[in-house]
Design a protein around this nucleic acid. Structure first.
Lengths: 135, 135
DNA sequence: CTAAAACCTGACGTTGACGTCAGAGGCAAG
DNA sequence: CTTGCCTCTGACGTCAACGTCAGGTTTTAG
C-alpha cells in the first residue's frame, strides 16, 4: 500500500503520515525509487496514533508509548510511563466532566427561565441574531 | 484589584490576563493613569475561562459562551451554542475514555505476564473497548 | 526624594502538528 | 511518447495562547 491509499484508509493527510515517520511513529519500507510502502496493519497503527494525539499526547510521548502498546515491550519503565499517561488522561476526563456539568447546569437554567433566572434579555438581542448558525 | 493581584489569585500570568482582555473575554476599568482594575468576581471569571480553555475551546468560542454563562443571556442561539459545546465536550470525554480503556488493557497485560505476555491479539483489546461511556 | 516594584503599550519569539508550494522524478494508460 | 496522477524532498507558512523583551510611566516602600 502506498502513502495515498493509507491516507485515504486511515483518514489522515499524506503530509501527516510523512510527519509521523519523521517523528519516529510510523515506519515504511521503500521501493527502489524511494516510494513508501506500508503493510495493512499500518491503518490500525495510524488510527491509534490519532487516538493518542486526540488525548493530548505529544509526538515524543507517543513515540515512547507505542512500543509498549504494539510491540508489547514490558519493562518497569514502560509500565510506569503507561500508568502516568493513563492517569493524565483520567485527570483530563475528570476536568472535562466538571466543565460539562457546569455547562449542563447553565443549560438547565436557560431552559426553565421561571426557576431562578435573574436576568432575561430584551427583544433587541434576540431580534438582532436573526440568521442561524446551526452547525 | 490590580492585574498582578488578580494573576496571583487566579493562577494565571499577567500576560494571559491582558490577552484575555484583548480577546474580549475579560474587561477591566481603568484608573486615570491607565492601569487596569478588576472587581473580586473577576477571579471566578478567569478560572471559568481557564476551565473552558482546558476543554479545548477557542477564544472565539469562549467569547460567545461567556455571556450565556455569566450574564445569563438566554436566546435560542445561545442555548444552541451551549448545547453544541456541551456535546463536543461529551464526545471528547467519550474518546478519552476509550483511549484510557485501551491503555488500561495494555497495562493489565503488562502486569500479568503469565497470561500471554509475548503476543496478544488486538481482538481482546477491541472487544473490551465496548464499555460504557458515562452518559 | 529616591529606588524598587508594578504597570503600560507594542512587537517579536515560541511550540506543535501539520498545510502548502516548488521543483523533480516515477508509473500505468492511450 | 506523452499525458496525467502520484510520489519524493526540502522548506516556508499557519494558528493559538501565550512568553519575553524593550522602553517608558506609575505606585509604593523607606
Amino acid at each position: 500500500m502506498r502513502i495515498g491509499e493509507l491516507a485515504a484508509k486511515s483518514g489522515v493527510s499524506v503530509r501527516a503520515l510523512r510527519y509521523y515517520e519523521e517523528q519516529g511513529l510510523l515506519e515504511a519500507t521503500r521501493s527502489y525509487s524511494g516510494q513508501r510502502h506500508y503493510p495493512e496493519p499500518a491503518t490500525d497503527r495510524v488510527q491509534l496514533i490519532q487516538m493518542l494525539y486526540a488525548a493530548g499526547l505529544s509526538s515524543k510521548t507517543i513515540a515512547e508509548l507505542l512500543p509498549c502498546v504494539e510491540a508489547r515491550v514490558n519493562t518497569p519503565e514502560s509500565r510506569a510511563r503507561l500508568a502516568a499517561e493513563r492517569d493524565r488522561i483520567e485527570a483530563q476526563i475528570a476536568a472535562l466532566t466538571r466543565t460539562r456539568d457546569r455547562l449542563d447546569a447553565v443549560i438547565a437554567i436557560s431552559e426553565s427561565p421561571e426557576s431562578g433566572c435573574t436576568y432575561v434579555p430584551d427583544r433587541d438581542v434576540a431580534a438582532e441574531a436573526g440568521h442561524s448558525v446551526t452547525s
